[in-house]
Design a protein around this nucleic acid. Structure first.
Length: 575
RNA sequence: GGCCCCUUAGCUCAGUUGGAUAGAGCAGCGGACUUCUAAUCCGCAGGUCCAAGGUUCGAAUCCUUGAGGGGUCGCCA
C-alpha cells in the first residue's frame, strides 16, 4: 500500500466534497518536523482556505473531523496555523509493513501514471584516453538517475555520445602514430600538443603487429584515417572497460562522425533551423574580455539570444567546417526524431556556459515540446587522510577512474559520488571511504542490510528455516513502540522518495533516504537490548519473532532495492 | 566585466519543491558490550540559515540589490 498517496487521496476527496477545488495541486501530505505532531501532516486547510475565503483553522477542524472517521486514521487534529496532524492506525502501518515484504511490488508503487520515453546521456568523454575521477561522478550520477527514472516507470535509454569528429581525434591519431614508430624501434619524443600518456603504447604495438612497416612508408593523408580509426576504437574499448568497473553500461553509443557521413545530418539540422528563422549569416559582437587578434567575420549563426542566451552562437568555423555546437544540434535533433519525450544530459561543471545554447537549440528544434534538462556535476576533489591529492594534467599525470576503483572498490565510489547534490562540489577522501564506521555512509547502509540478513539467520537457527516462509502470514498489527512505528513510517516513504528523486533528477535523495532507513533499523536493534519485547529474535516467543522478522525483511528488501538503484551491492554479511 | 553554480553548527553536509521550535554525521563531553556482529546505540552541548530589502497567513527555500568562493567567456571539445 502506498500510504502517503492513499492519505492524500482521502484529503483531496474531502476537499472536493466541500467544493474546494482551487489550489488542489498544492495539497501535500508530509512528515511533520516534530514527531510529537503525529505521523503525518497536511497543509490542505491552509492552501485551500484562501481561494475559498474561509478560515484555515475552521477548515482544518472540519478536515480533521472527516479524516478521523477514516479507517486509515487513528487520530486527526488541527494545530498551529491550520495544519491537520494525523496519527495513522496500527492496521494501516501493518499494511505498509506487509507491502514492503515484496520489495519489487512495493517499489513499483512509485510508478507514474504518465510514463515517458526519456534519453539520459552521460559520460560522453572524448575518446582520447582513459577515464579519470572527474568522469566517474557524471557516470555514476547518470547511471543511477537512469535506474531511478526506470523505477518511476519511464522508458529510459542510456546513451553515450562519442566526440570522434574534432581536431582532438587527429591529435590522438598522431600521438598513436608516434607510439607505432616507437614500436618499430625508433627513438621518439612526444612533442607538446600531443598526448604524452603511455596508455597509447599498446595501440602503437597493435598497429605495428597488424601493419608492420607499411604505415611508416605512407603519406599522412593515407595513414591518418587508418590510425585514427584504430585509436578511437582502442580508446572506446578502454573507456567501456573503465565503466564496466563501476558496472555502468550504455544502451546506445552515437558517433559524432556518423552524423556527417554518409548523410550530412548536421547540414540538415541547420537547414531545418534556418527554415524556422533561427539561422542567419552575420557577425558576432566583439567579446568584453581581452581577445587578441579579434577580427569581425561573417559566419553562420544560431539565434540563441531568442531563448535568453547572451550572444548568438557560431555553427561554422573559419574553414567552413562545423563547430562542435553544430554537430551537437544535429545530435539532439536526432534524439528528438527518435521519439524521446524528455532529454537529460549529464555534463561536467566546465560546460556550464554551454547549457543555454543547447537548451535553446532543443527548444527551437522541438518547438518547445521536448524539454532538455542539463545536470551539471561539480568538481571532485581528491584527498588522502585530509591532504589534497595533486594532479597535473599537463604532465599526463591524473588519477584514473580505474586507479580509484582499484584502491577503494566500486561500492564506495558509487555511493560517495551520490551522497551529495550533483551541483555541489564533492570532496572524496580515499582514507575516509574505506573506513568501517558510522562516519562512512556506504558502510553504514551496507551494514544495516547485513544486519537484517543476520537477523533472519538467527531466527532460522532458533525456530527452523521454515519460519522464514511464514512471514507473509505474520501478525503485523503488533507494532506500537515509537521506534517501531517510525521505522514503518520511514518504509512508507520509499515510493515517494523514488518518485521525488526521479521527478527532480536528484539521485542523492535515495542515498540519504537509505542512510535514514539504516539509522532507524540500527536504533530499533539497540532498543531490543534494553527491552526484550522489542528484540527481533526472541527464542521464547515464536509469534513475536515472526512479526518482527517480517518487519526486518521489509526493511531489508527496501534497502536492497535502494542500493540496487544506486548500483551498490547489498551484502548479506560483512565479516 | 557578462553568464552559471555555491554560501546553513568548529568541520563535512541534508533540509520532503513555501510550513510549525532549522536537522544529521564527525569533532567535544557523558553513558550502554555475560549481545541478535558495540562495525552499533542513547543523551548533552553547539545557529544572525552570508547581508539588507521585498512578496504573504508563513521564507533557509521565491524576487531585487550587494558581499565572498568556484566555473566559464568568438571557430577548442
Amino acid at each position: 500500500m502506498h500510504l502517503i498517496k492513499a492519505l492524500k487521496a482521502r484529503v483531496i476527496n474531502i476537499a472536493v466534497d466541500e467544493g474546494l477545488t482551487d489550489n488542489l495541486q498544492r495539497v501535500a501530505v508530509e512528515l511533520p518536523r516534530d514527531a510529537s505532531h503525529g505521523d503525518f501532516a497536511t497543509n490542505a486547510a491552509m492552501v485551500l482556505a484562501k481561494p475559498a475565503k474561509r478560515n484555515p483553522r475552521e477548515l482544518g477542524a472540519l478536515i480533521a473531523e472527516r479524516l478521523a472517521e477514516d479507517p486509515l486514521v487513528e487520530k486527526a487534529e488541527v494545530a498551529g496555523p491550520g495544519f491537520v496532524n494525523l496519527t495513522v492506525a496500527n492496521s494501516a502501518l501493518a499494511e505498509v509493513a506487509r507491502s514492503a515484504l515484496d520489495g519489487e511490488a512495493f517499489t513499483a508503487l512509485a510508478r507514474t501514471d504518465a510514463p515517458q520515453r526519456i534519453n539520459v546521456e552521460y559520460v560522453s568523454a572524448n575518446p582520447t584516453g582513459p577515464l579519470h575521477v572527474g568522469h566517474a561522478r557524471g557516470a555514476v550520477v547518470g547511471d543511477s538517475l537512469a535506474s531511478i527514472l526506470a523505477l518511476r516507470g519511464h522508458q529510459v535509454t542510456r546513451e553515450y555520445y562519442i566526440n570522434d569528429a574534432g581536431a582532438q581525434v587527429d591529435i590522438l591519431a598522431h600521438s598513436a602514430y608516434l607510439r607505432y614508430r616507437e614500436a618499430l624501434g625508433e627513438e621518439i619524443e612526444v612533442p607538446a600538443g600531443l598526448y604524452p600518456g603511455t596508455y597509447l603504447k599498446p595501440v602503437g604495438d597493435a598497429l605495428a603487429k597488424t601493419y608492420g612497416e607499411t604505415l611508416r612508408d605512407m603519406d599522412e593523408i593515407e595513414w591518418l584515417p587508418i590510425v585514427r580509426e584504430a585509436s578511437i576504437e582502442a580508446m572506446m574499448d578502454a573507456i567501456r572497460a573503465d565503466l564496466a568497473l563501476l558496472d555502468i553500461r550504455h544502451d546506445v553509443f552515437t558517433s559524432e562522425r556518423k552524423l556527417q557521413r554518409p548523410v550530412d545530418l548536421v547540414a540538415r539540422a541547420i537547414e531545418t533551423l534556418r527554415g524556422a528563422g533561427y539561422v542567419y549569416e552575420g557577425t558576432l559582437p566583439r567579446p568584453k574580455g581581452a581577445v587578441e587578434d579579434w577580427e569581425d567575420r561573417v559566419q553562420t549563426l544560431f539565434r540563441s539570444t531568442d531563448f535568453g542566451d547572451d550572444v548568438d552562437r557560431a555553427l561554422q568555423k573559419a574553414d567552413d567546417s562545423y563547430t562542435y555546437f553544430a554537430s551537437d544540434i544535429a545530435y539532439h535533433a536526432d534524439k528528438i526524431e527518435r521519439g524521446f519525450e524528455r532529454l537529460i544530459d549529464v555534463w561536467g561543471a566546465d560546460h556550464g556556459g554551454y547549457v543555454k545554447r543547447m537548451t535553446a537549440a532543443v527548444k527551437a528544434l522541438s518547438h518547445s515540446r521536448v524539454p532538455l534538462d542539463v545536470l551539471l556535476c561539480q568538481l571532485v576533489k581528491l584527498y588522502r587522510s585530509g591532504e589534497p591529492v595533486k594532479m597535473s594534467k599537463r604532465a599526463g599525470e591524473f588519477v584514473t577512474l580505474a586507479d580509484v576503483v582499484e584502491e577503494v572498490g566500486a561500492d564506495p565510489v558509487r555511493f560517495m559520488m551520490l551522497y551529495r547534490k550533483s551541483d555541489a562540489p564533492l570532496d572524496f577522501d580515499f582514507t575516509a571511504v574505506t573506513e568501517q564506521s558510522r562516519d562512512n555512509p556506504v558502510f553504514y547502509v551496507q551494514y544495516a542490510h547485513a544486519r537484517c540478513a543476520s537477523v533472519k539467520r538467527q531466527a532460522a537457527d532458533s525456530f527452523g528455516p521454515e519460519l522464514l516462509n511464514e512471514l507473509d502470514g505474520a501478525d503485523l498489527a503488533v507494532f506500537s513502540d515509537p521506534a517501531e512505528r517510525s521505522l514503518i513510517i520511514l518504509l512508507a516513504q520509499w515510493p515517494t522518495v523514488i518518485a521525488n528523486a526521479a521527478d527532480a533528477s536528484e539521485p542523492h535523495r535515495v542515498a540519504f533516504y537509505l542512510n535514514d532507513l539504516a539509522s532507524g533499523l540500527h536504533s530499533l536493534w539497540n532498543k531490543g537490548k534494553e527491552n526484550a519485547g522489542l528484540r527481533f529474535v526472541n527464542a521464547d516467543d515464536r509469534n513475536s519473532t515472526l512479526s518482527r522478522v517480517a518487519l526486518v525483511e521489509g526493511v531489508r528488501s527496501v534497502l536492497s532495492s535502494g542500493l540496487a538503484a544506486l548500483g551498490v551491492q547489498a551484502p548479506d554479511e560483512m565479516r
